[in-house]
Design a binder for these strands. Structure first.
Length: 615
RNA sequence: GGGGUAGUAGCUCAGUUGGUUAGAGCGCCUGCCUGUCACGCAGGAGGUCGCGAGUUCGAGUCUCGUCUAUCCCGCCA
């Protein structure tokens, strides 16, 4: 008896049974040509329409939806079985493809001209009622925490399926491109050692080395440079990177970069290579022809004109410098700013004069949040300028303003008077917020298929860090200086430009890279003389690199592109969580698996770790 | 670490100056229904108003704290 029951159980998995599971077509495939064919479909029950007699089931799989018909006149017991199906259950259906009567053709459906008249029904797995609708429109409104808890249900929605198709296509285009260009994909370790000058890292305790830790790589930077010394010449990798920093809509603790490094190249080679890659990806994923070469904007210009090192050039409203206009101004705020070496910046938010007091207050708070004292403005309304500051301006200043900013009825001009970088940054941020307001008011339209790629170049090699009282690398310490600036390294380090480049798309930093230092003496000088890293610390952290550079290091350079951000833009979504299968919340938790979680005392003991009481 | 927003039925939301039994749509359950495709019709179940204090005769509503999610600043060489 027991034996027999076990046999029944096994029967569920017999070869015959598995044969029945095989589909002959997918649910987006059948059309009028297939009429009369015997087919087998398998998928998820999308919806059931039970008319008391005839029953329609929409069957969904990755590729589409096909209507299945159960007619009690053909098979009463089969229709009875179908009538108790639950949405989201997995079923297999055999039947024949029938043309729908003309008046019942569904033009909203690819497969709307046909239906499958069922002859058998296999219920592979019955679904409980889902906690939220598996539906594009309704599903979009569901709280993200719930979607993430049941990510496997969320991902069944066609919108999500489309995104992961895009992600795959972009990845494939990338690999195809680099393979054709002669690159080798090489995997590099995730377990590295800590390099404290960068982002905060995830630490991994070493069981075999008590008290010591690995760090998960923030990027394969140092390994890929070693691959160049190793003679790989052209390396790429879809590289997972880990950073233990606070999260944002465009930042996850683990993320993917298109990472590459090449030997014997200069900046021009890199621009051409990446422009080719972008063109390839956009063509294959979206069938869009991206224009190349991309615009190049020096860092200083980007700051002056857009107030950002990742300018969004899809709309105008460029920032102007007004230092010369107000050089002899009676207006004390402007005059004193200029005297102390700061700048006066302004831009014209065209057509935004009608903004509400609340919106204006919000902009002011934003400016103050960035360290501005306030946000001066001039509204051009009803033929006059309304502004708390315009009374301080001379006739000549007003004329110059009007001319330089093109002030017309309905405009509002915002001002920043501050130390150069802050004045730029404040204007840059207000510019973006103003554009957002104009968009919401329907006064600014940016086509969704507009892609403004550009290179930001000529970054400073170093920036002065107040707290540490020393220069630190603007990008990373392996970036090569622009050759003609190298002489300034000792006398005026902040004037030295780095051979660094950032790729920017629609105001989003897609990635960045540089030509690297490949000479041991220069790298050593940067570590010790410019960044003032004590020699023993430099030896500890980078000794192996300096050693490697003593054995025939080729000139080389590379770049890394944020793949998640790229896919988000390709998909038209704003959060990279939407393009990562199993993303983490802002607190770094995975709601589906409930990680991170506690571990046993035994595990901790093995790792030589004791957890502190936190109060 | 800081600032903003949100949390009411399974889901999305409404809920007036603090006032009697907290509502709607969808979903779910039951019944009816043979050409629908977001099928339709009728009926029904379903709530610790995130959690904890406080003010009050009385709190979904006011106050404080806290938790969670999210957006932003700091941070992200």
């Amino acid at each position: 008896m027991t034996f027999q029951r076990a046999g029944d159980w096994v029967a569920l998995f017999t070869i015959d049974r598995i044969k029945e599971m095989k589909r002959t077509h997918h649910c987006g495939q059948l059309n009028k040509v297939s009429v009369g064919e015997k087919v087998h479909l398998i998928g998820w029950v999308d919806s059931i329409r039970d008319h008391g007699g005839i029953i329609f089931v929409d069957l969904r799989d990755r590729e589409g939806i096909t209507q299945i018909v159960f007619n009690p006149e053909d098979d009463a017991s089969l229709a009875e079985e179908a009538s108790v199906l639950k949405p989201e259950s997995v079923i297999g259906v055999a039947g024949s493809v029938g043309a729908r009567p003309e008046e019942t053709v569904n033009r909203k459906l690819e497969t709307g001209g046909i239906e499958v008249v069922a002859t058998t029904l296999d219920v592979h797995n019955v679904a409980q009622t889902p906690p939220f609708p598996i539906d594009d429109e309704k599903g979009d409104k569901v709280g993200e925490d719930l979607r993430l808890t049941y990510r496997y249900l969320d991902m069944r929605r066609p919108k999500m399926q489309r995104i992961f198709r895009i992600r795959h296509d972009a990845c494939k285009a990338t690999r195809d491109y680099f393979n054709e260009e002669g690159f080798l994909e090489v995997e590099t370790p995730f377990l590295f050692k800590s390099t404290p000058e960068g982002a905060r890292e995830y630490l991994v305790p070493s069981r075999l080395n008590p008290g010591e830790f690995y760090a998960l790589t923030q990027s394969p930077q140092q390994f890929k440079q070693m691959l160049m010394v190793a003679g790989i010449e052209k390396y790429y990798q879809m590289a997972r990177c880990f950073r233990d920093e606070d999260l944002r809509a465009d930042r996850q603790p683990e993320f993917t970069q298109i990472d590459l490094e090449m030997s014997f190249i200069d900046r021009e080679d890199m621009y051409a290579l990446i422009e080719g890659l972008i063109r390839r990806i956009w063509k294959e994923v979206l069938d869009v022809d991206v224009r190349a070469p991309f615009t190049r904007i020096p860092y200083v210009d980007a700051m002056n004109r857009y107030g950002s090192d990742k300018p969004d050039t899809r709309f105008g409203m460029e920032i102007r410098d007004l230092g010369d206009v107000f050089a002899k101004s009676e207006f004390k705020v402007f005059a004193s700013t200029l005297r102390s070496g700061g700048g006066i910046k302004a831009f014209n938010a065209k057509g935004l004069a009608e903004l509400t007091q609340g919106e204006l207050n919000h902009l002011t708070e934003t400016a103050q949040g960035l360290g501005a004292k306030g946000l001066a403005f001039i509204k051009a309304e009803k033929g006059e300028w309304k502004s708390p500051i315009v009374k301080f301006f001379s006739g000549g200043e007003k004329a110059a303003l009007s001319e330089r900013l093109g002030i017309e009825e309905g405009d509002i001009v915002f001002f920043a008077a501050d130390e150069w970088e802050r004045a730029c940054t404040v204007m840059g941020r207000i510019r973006l917020e103003a554009a957002e307001l104009l968009k919401n008011k329907g006064r600014l339209e940016i086509p969704s298929d507009r892609y403004d790629f550009l290179w930001v170049v000529d970054f400073p090699l170093v920036v002065y860090e107040e707290e540490a009282g020393r220069y630190v690398a603007a990008h990373h310490p392996f970036t090569a200086p622009v050759p003609e600036d190298t002489g300034l390294l000792d006398s005026d380090p902040k004037a030295v430009r780095g051979q660094h480049y950032d790729l920017v798309l629609n105001g989003v930093e897609l990635g960045g890279g540089s030509i690297r230092v490949h000479r041991r003496e220069l790298q050593k000088k940067l570590f010790e003389d410019v960044f003032r890293i004590p020699p023993d610390v430099a030896e500890d952290r980078f000794g192996y690199m300096l050693r490697a550079f003593g054995y025939g290091a080729p000139p080389h350079g590379g770049i890394a592109l944020g793949f998640d951000r790229m896919v988000a833009i390709l998909s038209g979504v704003t959060s990279i969580r939407d393009v990562i299968a199993f993303p983490k919340t802002q607190k770094g938790q995975c709601l589906m698996t409930d990680s991170p979680g506690p571990v046993t005392e035994r595990q901790l003991r093995d790792l030589h770790i004791r957890v502190m009481d936190t109060e």
